[in-house]
Design a protein around this nucleic acid. Structure first.
Lengths: 207, 207
DNA sequence: GGCGCGATGTAAGCGCCGTAAACATTGGAG
DNA sequence: CTCCAATGTTTACGGCGCTTACATCGCGCC
């Protein structure tokens, strides 16, 4: 294990990730540069290259951290999410995470994903499987649980992005909460006529 | 009107936007620099500043162009989208647009939005209102058409992003089409028991 | 117990970037 | 014809990602 002795840092990798998170919160992704991270860690400009192959690797590390945090918040907010209504609560946690950590959320989802970063891939798999499980227990009788899980993830993810990009009003937390709740509940309040028409057309269209 | 005489370009603004689009398609958003745009337009590095206040202004211009194109493709693909099933077709157009122009789509939706660019704001409003109209005609009896429109937009938008970020498989167009169709249809195939539970809980939760 | 080697950090430098300031060229209005 | 406003050029500055060469440490081996 390396130690902090004035020349060697001790745990520069973790310090870089921490600095990157701070810079992200303060200045947005524009302020996230390797040099700024190095400055904040109190180290020369090129030192981080011993721990990250390039800027993308650092960003992937931050993103992976973000995935784990998001998965944790979802699990904590709703440990056994077995009711459809619980989906609204989960959706709100997801959207809130995006709004409270906008730059981090963008790093996680809005940059060309480095598919070669296994840390990143693994972290997203955790998130995806968690949502799969939620949907499976919330809708045990679903015809196509996988498709429904995709639907739910996409809905929640889209809500997060539209709020984040100012396409939907975020002036008050209550407004956001109401809209997210209404959007999720709208799934279950489709007018019967439309629903019947839609399912009938589905049968013919998917064959 | 300015003319092309070897010193003055003629229509540098349009040329910059065109060059920016090309660079975006070729090298992704990483390759979109003001200097590269200037080079491609055959002009000095600082000439674009006569037409764009800064890099963000150029990006906003490109994004606005993208919004208009997307709205056009949606309208063209499905002029009077009045059936719920048509939503699946619309969703597919939206997702395809994202996958065919990934860097442009990211510029449109995945960067901190410059809310001061009226061109950009206006262009997104067009898109939003179009979707509102689609949902209103597709579900004339909806309890809360606005919430449902949000739901649909979010679903479609989320599907686009999850595919774009490699969170969902995009190896074949057919796989994408099938998944998008299934996700949209899953909305209409919720098991009745779950649906009843959900609406019952909705009534109590939203009071 | 010293020594050497791999891991880690530093220093210097390259080319690209965004942007500002001062200057040049042009067509058209008065 | 003359001057002006619009447009394009030149030069320059600091920050950035990244490479290459060099410095400093601790640990394992004899």
């Amino acid at each position: 294990m390396p130690q902090n002795n004035g020349y060697h840092h001790g745990d520069l990798r973790a310090a870089c990730l921490r600095a990157a998170r701070e810079l992200l919160e303060e200045d947005g992704s524009a302020g996230l540069s390797l040099r700024a991270v190095a400055r904040r860690a109190g180290v020369s400009a090129t030192a981080p290259y011993r721990h990250f192959a390039d800027r993308d690797a650092l960003v992937s590390g931050v993103a992976a951290q973000g995935y784990r945090e998001l998965a944790g918040e979802l699990a904590e907010a709703h440990p056994p999410p077995s009711t459809p209504d619980g989906l609204a609560a989960l959706a709100l946690v997801y959207v809130r995470f995006a709004l409270e950590h906008p730059a981090l959320f963008r790093v996680m989802f809005a940059e060309p994903c480095d598919l070669t970063s296994e840390e990143r891939v693994a972290a997203t798999a955790v998130l995806s499987e968690y949502l799969q499980g939620v949907v499976r227990t919330a809708f045990p009788g679903s015809d196509d649980p996988e498709a429904l899980a995709t639907t739910v993830w996409a809905l929640v993810h889209g809500l997060a992005f539209l709020h984040l990009d100012g396409k939907l009003d975020t002036s008050t937390p209550q407004a956001v909460a109401d809209r997210v709740g209404a959007a999720v509940h709208a799934l279950f309040a489709l007018p019967p006529a439309a629903r019947r028409t839609a399912t009938a057309q589905t049968r013919t269209a998917t064959t």
